[in-house]
Design a protein around this nucleic acid. Structure first.
Lengths: 254, 254
DNA sequence: ATGTCTTTGTGAACGCGTGCACAAAGATAG
DNA sequence: CTATCTTTGTGCACGCGTTCACAAAGACAT
């Protein structure tokens, strides 16, 4: 089953490190808030605090974009908002389709942050005929048969998958075949895509499990006292009943 | 405004690298699928393919847990499922509260993956009195006033925040004060928490912006041909109108 | 114009994560 | 019991990302 590349940008992004790119939206958000309060300039220290990062890291990040600060003063908020927006490609319009209009899909369609920052929901798509035509967030749901046509007619290059896990790869393949080159995947599956297609995944279940790990660790350390603890935390393992669910559909209509 | 630690585990997790912990749920999912198909053993190569990672990485990851494989054969699926579940703390029950029952909160409440793997939705909480008592996913919504009591009565240590951005920090503070030590944050804000509290964030808007960046990059490279491109992609910047929304609430009820 | 003070931009060191490549371990066949 | 073959477990090297610490740059006061 093909060891296809997964969820790592193929191209090394011409100089700007991936880690930096991932933080730019954070800076942008903080800067937008400042802009709304009509704050003219910020120091790296202040902005870093607002974005929840180290100030040295922030300065280095900005250094990849160019020298937009003034020594002794700080950064011009408006100018920086513009520069980051441009760098992220937010000065242009990005039509997006959402495939799979269950609970999660509907929530995404209603998401306010979509409309802002250049993203526009071009279409909602679902395989369930019962949903076809029904408006969600003011947009009528279209049937999956129309997928290819929708993509091409609207010049969509970004797709969001919020279908059950079982349908995700198939939907992904069709999106890619129709011309989509960036995918945001909410289904709990590993998607295989050709080179040149970016996949980012958001997986609630994984996030929770990571939290559980650290939570268990904390509980263990507390119980033992503070000394080095033996591989595993205290006792407490009840029995090995893992639920009979396996790869559950991400979020289902009912 | 205190430079509080954010979303990095304070403690260095006793030997197991964070990157490895983040992959364990992935392996677990692949293994569970194999288990359901009654596959007795897997090689690192097969499992790695299923999980979408490098086989060497997978073997190194497992080596942190101990030596659970058999050379010349591979790994025992059932045994590995158990070991990883135990390591992640999934053999015990984790009561979870969801605060903010808008579209997203409702979607999360309905999420099948919650119930599985030891996570149990102990309560749904919202500040809107109109929602109080109304069942969502079969669970009646409780009013935010009850938050502290709910946390304590159920021994909740993991909280999910799906409120608008404006309310997130306040909710977070109350959760932490009531004893929650792990938070999954869906609101588009930087949360400040005391040491010892873990925060993980899921931010749709950020993911999209990262995709947009790479998308723009691809478009630029394609247009130029293939050679080194001058800092920014081709022309195409329309004008600097950034939407007037700023920190939009994550996902709103209406 | 000169000096002081603030804040940026970055060189350099360090640590973590990744991937290669191979030796050790065990299964399996003869 | 010996030989062969498969697959694990890991030493090692490399590259990315983070952080420190400081020199350069500019604002501002005198």
């Amino acid at each position: 089953m093909a060891t296809g590349r997964t969820h790592r940008p193929a191209t090394r992004s011409r100089g700007i490190p991936e880690a930096t790119v991932a933080r730019l939206p954070l800076y942008l958000r903080a800067l937008t808030a400042l802009s709304e309060r009509s704050v003219p300039t910020v120091s790296s220290e202040e902005l870093a605090a607002a974005a929840g990062v180290n100030s040295a890291k922030l300065r280095k990040d900005f250094s990849y974009l160019g020298s937009y600060g003034t020594r002794g003063v700080g950064y011009d908020v408006e100018y920086l908002v513009y520069q980051i927006s441009r760098e992220l490609g937010l000065t242009q319009d990005w039509p997006v389709v959402i495939v799979g209009i269950g609970n999660l899909g509907a929530a995404l369609a209603n998401y306010g942050g979509f409309a802002s920052r250049g993203f526009r929901v071009a279409a909602l798509i679902d395989a369930d005929p019962a949903l076809t035509g029904k408006p969600v967030a003011g947009i009528p749901v279209q049937h999956a048969d129309e997928l290819e046509k929708i993509i091409r007619d609207n010049g969509v290059s970004i797709g969001v998958i919020s279908t059950p896990a079982g349908a995700a790869q198939q939907v992904c393949d069709r999106l890619v075949a129709a011309g989509v080159t960036s995918i945001l995947n909410f289904a709990p599956t590993v998607l295989t895509v050709p080179d040149g297609v970016d996949v980012r995944k958001v997986d609630l279940s994984i996030e929770l499990q990571i939290l559980a790990f650290h939570e268990q660790r904390k509980a263990g350390e507390e119980a033992v006292g503070k000394g080095p603890l033996p591989q595993t935390a205290a006792g407490r393992d009840e029995s090995a009943d893992q639920g009979p669910d396996g790869d559950v559909p991400a979020v289902m209509p009912a």
